[in-house]
């Protein structure tokens, strides 16, 4: 069944917000473009919205806007809209990062979307058995490659290790590799963790949407 629509006028009347606020929120990506449905009515062009969703969204914005900045609101309410605007203070609250990611944090707050993604990859490695020091290699690697986010498909990210033995000396070296398929490492390397970047990215977006 089609969702019930509500006119813009009615939205303003019911919520008490102004035109200015509504347009501002639209511009900032808090209200998705797709929700603005233009229709011809006997009294001229009017804009309608999916009733339940718009009223719920405005209620959430009004509730949160005192304590959160506009950019944080965007991250909370429509992370897909503007990932570049995200500044997140508490990464461990996101399930793809979680408690496993706590040891990987390197600053108090203000994590950007690529940084959150790097943390999620590190945390995933920890869950797969990597030691924090090794996971940190992944975080550092991905932090410096935000372009991966644009098209993660076909890109491999692995944590590998290699044993080097010399005279009376045995050294185990761990390293993180990021590259396109096919990725080849020399036979002496052992892949410890292989990350599915696409899946981690999707999980992160989803959880950013859910925390709200």
């Amino acid at each position: 069944m089609a969702e019930e629509l509500i006119s813009k006028k009615e939205v303003l009347r019911l919520t008490g917000i102004s035109y200015g606020q509504l347009y501002r929120w639209k511009r900032k990506g808090l209200i998705p473009e797709a929700w603005f449905i233009r229709k011809a009515t006997p009294t001229g062009q009017e804009t309608f919205f999916p009733k339940e969703r718009i009223l719920e969204r405005i209620r959430r914005i009004q509730e949160l806007k005192e304590e959160r900045s506009l950019d944080e609101l965007v991250a909370l309410l429509s992370p897909e809209a503007r990932p570049e605007a995200i500044r997140w203070d508490d990464p461990t609250s996101l399930s793809p990062i979680g408690e496993e990611g706590r040891v990987l944090l390197w600053k108090d707050g203000g994590y950007t979307f690529p940084e959150l993604f790097a943390l999620a990859c590190g945390a995933e490695a920890v869950r797969k058995g990597a030691r924090p020091g090794e996971a940190r290699l992944l975080v550092d690697l991905l932090k410096g490659a935000p372009d991966v986010l644009k098209s993660p498909s076909g890109i491999l990210c692995v944590l590998a290790e290699k044993e080097v033995t010399g005279e009376g000396l045995s050294l185990r070296v761990a390293f993180a590799v990021l590259g396109r398929e096919p990725l080849r490492l020399d036979p002496g390397c052992r892949v410890r963790v292989r990350l599915d970047l696409e899946k981690i990215l999707e999980g992160l977006k989803l959880s950013l949407g859910e925390v709200s």
């Binding site: 813009k8 102004s18 035109y19 200015g20 347009y23 001229g44 062009q45 009017e46």
Partner: peptide, 11 residues
């Protein structure tokens, strides 16, 4: 100088 527009909405 003249502006033609479907609608103007603002405070």
């Amino acid at each position: 100088g003249m502006l033609e527009v479907e609608s103007v909405e603002g405070d």
